[in-house]
Design a protein around this nucleic acid. Structure first.
Lengths: 216, 216
DNA sequence: GAATTAATTGAACGTTCGTTTTATTAATTT
DNA sequence: AAATTAATAAAACGAACGTTCAATTAATTC
C-alpha cells in the first residue's frame, strides 16, 4: 500500500508530536521505539521520517518548543509593576499554571536532556538559564529593596524552581486539590520562604494571618 | 582466555555496582549497555551475569540499597526530642547530607523508576512513601502544636522534599558554596516556609532576625 | 599434587533498533 | 484528463542489544 485516503501531513505531524510527548514521558526517550510511536499514531515507522529526520530531531523539537513556550508565557504574564512581591507572585503563578498544563512536556524537557547532542543541549540550557535569571533578578531586586530576606539569590532561585516544578510529580488534576488551591499554597509557601512582606507599608509577613507573633 | 590472575568476586561485584551507578546516572539506564558497563569495570559483558542475573536486577539492587540506606540514615539521625522544630531540622540536615553524598545514586533512584517491573516499582515506592511519611508526621505534629503554619501537610511535605532533593541538580562540592553553607540555607528556607517559631517561648520567627515586623 | 571450585573469556543467538530505499496510491495542479 | 506532488506502506539494512553457553584458567580444598 501507499498513501492512504484522507491522509494529511499537517495532521499527521501534530499527531506524532502529541504521541511522542506522551510516550517519551511515560517510557523515556531511549525506551520508546520509533515503531511504537508510529503504531500510536496509526502509521508505519518509515512515515515518521517525513516529518523528523532523526529520532533526536524529534526530541529536540519537542524540547525547544516547550522552552520557547515557557519563555513566551512568562513574557506575556510579566507584570508592568516594579514591585518585587507582585513580580514574584506573577512568576510563581505562571510557573505553576504552565507546568500543570504541560506535565508531560515538562517531564520530557527535564528528564531527557542527556539524549541531546552537546550543541543542542547547550541551546536548551541557554533558554532555561534565561528563564531562571528572571527569577534571580526578582529575588535580588526584592532583597535590595529590603522586602525579601534571602541568604543567597542563586541558591534560593534554584530551590524555588525545583519546589515549584516538582508539582508535576505528585499533582493530578481532579483529585483532592484544585489547581487554584495548589497555586495558592505554593504562592504562600514561596512568600514565606523569601521572607516577603506586603509592600504597601503594613509590614505584615505572608502566611501568618492566623498567628500572633512579635519580632524581637 | 578465562579466569584472570588476582580476580576476586567480591571486588568485581563492588566495582560493577560503583560503575553502574555512575554510568546510569550519566547516560540513563536504557542508554547504558551491559558491554559499556563491563568495559568500565575492565571485564567482558558475560562476566556481569555472574553477579546480577539480568540488567533489571542490577538496577533494582542499586535502588533498593539506596532507599534502605536513606531509611537507615534517618533512623540513626532521628532525634529523641519530641519538639517538631528539632525534628524538622534533623530531617532537613539528614536529607541534604545524604543526598549530596550520594548524588549519582539519588539520580538513579529518582529517574529510572519506570524501568522497574510493576512489583519492584511498588516495593521501591513503599520505601519512599515511608520516608516521606516521617516528614508529614513532623509537619502535622508541628501544626497541631501551633509552632508551624502549614496549609496542607501533604502538599508541604512534597514541596519540601522536592526542594531539598533538587540540591543534587545544581550543587557541586568544592564550588562557590560549602556543604555547610548549603545546609544552613536550606534549613532556614525550610523553617521560614513552614512558618516555624523557635519553640522556647520567645515567639521569634526564623530568618527574620534582621527585620522589624509586627503581626497585625 | 590431584580434584574441585571460582572467575572469566570468546563466540554466538535471536531480537530489536534507527534508518533508508523503492514502490504505490491519494490529492492537487495544470 | 494528464502530470505532478504529497503521503504513505513494505521490505530491507547493518548495527547493537541483552543474554547464554562452552571452554579455559586461577585459586582453593582435600
Amino acid at each position: 500500500m501507499a498513501r492512504t485516503t484522507g491522509s494529511d501531513g499537517g495532521k499527521t505531524e501534530a499527531a506524532v508530536r502529541e504521541a511522542a510527548v506522551s510516550l517519551i514521558a511515560r517510557l523515556g526517550y531511549e525506551a520508546m521505539s520509533m515503531r511504537q510511536l508510529a503504531a500510536e499514531v496509526g502509521v508505519q515507522a518509515a512515515a515518521l521520517y517525513r516529518y523528523f529526520p532523526t529520532k533526536e530531531d524529534l526530541l529536540f523539537t519537542l524540547m525547544r518548543e516547550h522552552m520557547e513556550g515557557l519563555l513566551k508565557a512568562w513574557e506575556a504574564a510579566r507584570p508592568a509593576s516594579a514591585d518585587p512581591v507582585t513580580r514574584l507572585a506573577a512568576y510563581v503563578e505562571n510557573h505553576i499554571a504552565f507546568h500543570i498544563e504541560r506535565r508531560h512536556a515538562t517531564h520530557v524537557s527535564n528528564m531527557e536532556l542527556r539524549s541531546l547532542s552537546h550543541e543542542r543541549l547547550t541551546q536548551i540550557l541557554k533558554m532555561r538559564t534565561a528563564y531562571e535569571k528572571e527569577l534571580r533578578t526578582i529575588l535580588r531586586d526584592g532583597a535590595e529593596a529590603g522586602v525579601f530576606q534571602v541568604d543567597d539569590t542563586g541558591l534560593t532561585a534554584m530551590a524555588l524552581i525545583q519546589m515549584m516544578t516538582g508539582v508535576i510529580v505528585w499533582f493530578r488534576p481532579g483529585e483532592r486539590l484544585s489547581v487554584a488551591e495548589v497555586t495558592a499554597s505554593y504562592l504562600s509557601m514561596t512568600m514565606r520562604l523569601v521572607g516577603a512582606t506586603i509592600s504597601h507599608g503594613t509590614a505584615r509577613p505572608f502566611g501568618r494571618r492566623r498567628g500572633a507573633l512579635i519580632e524581637a
